[in-house]
Amino acid sequence: MPAGILATLKGGPDPAGPIGGVTSEPALVRRLLIGIALVFLAFFLVLPLATVFVEAFRGGLRTYRAAFQDPDALSAIWLTLTVAAIVVPLNMVFGLAAAWAVAKFDFRGKSLLVTLIDLPFSVSPVVAGLAFVLLFGAQGLAGPWLADAGIRIIFSLPGIVLATVFVTFPFIARELIPLMQDQGTSDEEAALTLGAPGWRIFLRVTVPNVKWALLYGVLLCNARAMGEFGAVAVVSGHIRGLTNTMPLHVEILYNEYNLVGAFAMASLLAGLALVTLAVKSFLEWRYAGSIASASAR
């Protein structure tokens, strides 16, 4: 949480804390700890991020703009946006459905489902990509059948979408499950006794109750969907102008020693990430009150 980091950086005793309480370490220790944190932040977060932008603008604004005139670059940006536009709504539906099932119902294999939702976090994205190749590729299990039907999944958009859906699946579900479990089912039951039909309860009661968590999940899911490299790299086939997403295109440009092009593209990705963070922080700040009341009983 940005607010938490800020409070830590400011240091000093917490005004709400007990007198002479938990932050009574000597000033030297305090400064040392804060210093270490700052150096770490600068070295591992700020410096690399700054480098991206410095390198991108090294050749001046004109070269930077020229990097986006390249049709392959444009097609990579377009593909990434398309994939995100398909994946995020899909995972919104999956995430809501999974969280709904886990939080509001008791059934056999519930803990198994919760574990499975975490699977994409624990499996290497490359393995995930490979699994899809083995399933849908030309030599794969469903390969001959798909070839007969004229459906192409691997080395084309559907494969990239599948891999990205898999990798980003947990973000929305994980954001929703604890909140929905905490809220319980009595709001829905109240709406039911008042005579509301099921879809109406879902739209007017359930979704508004989790809208902030849902929005966080969507933002995080979107950031990851645009930035995913490993799984997409395996299934895309790196066909320039066709199946290259932005992260893949960055790698290609870098390997061709086109540093300005690579960093320009990277700066765009980094910019998207920064915007996502900014939006998240802004929402937290602007709606702190209603977020708190949404998670309170």
């Binding site: 039951e189 005579g195 509301a196 039909p197 109750n209």
Partner: peptide
């Protein structure tokens, strides 16, 4: 079904729609 039964139910923690 509940929604057609015509009962008014007041829940222990009120379950008011917070939004």
């Amino acid at each position: 079904p509940v929604r057609k039964r015509g009962v008014g139910f007041v829940f222990q923690h009120y379950a008011l729609f917070r939004h």
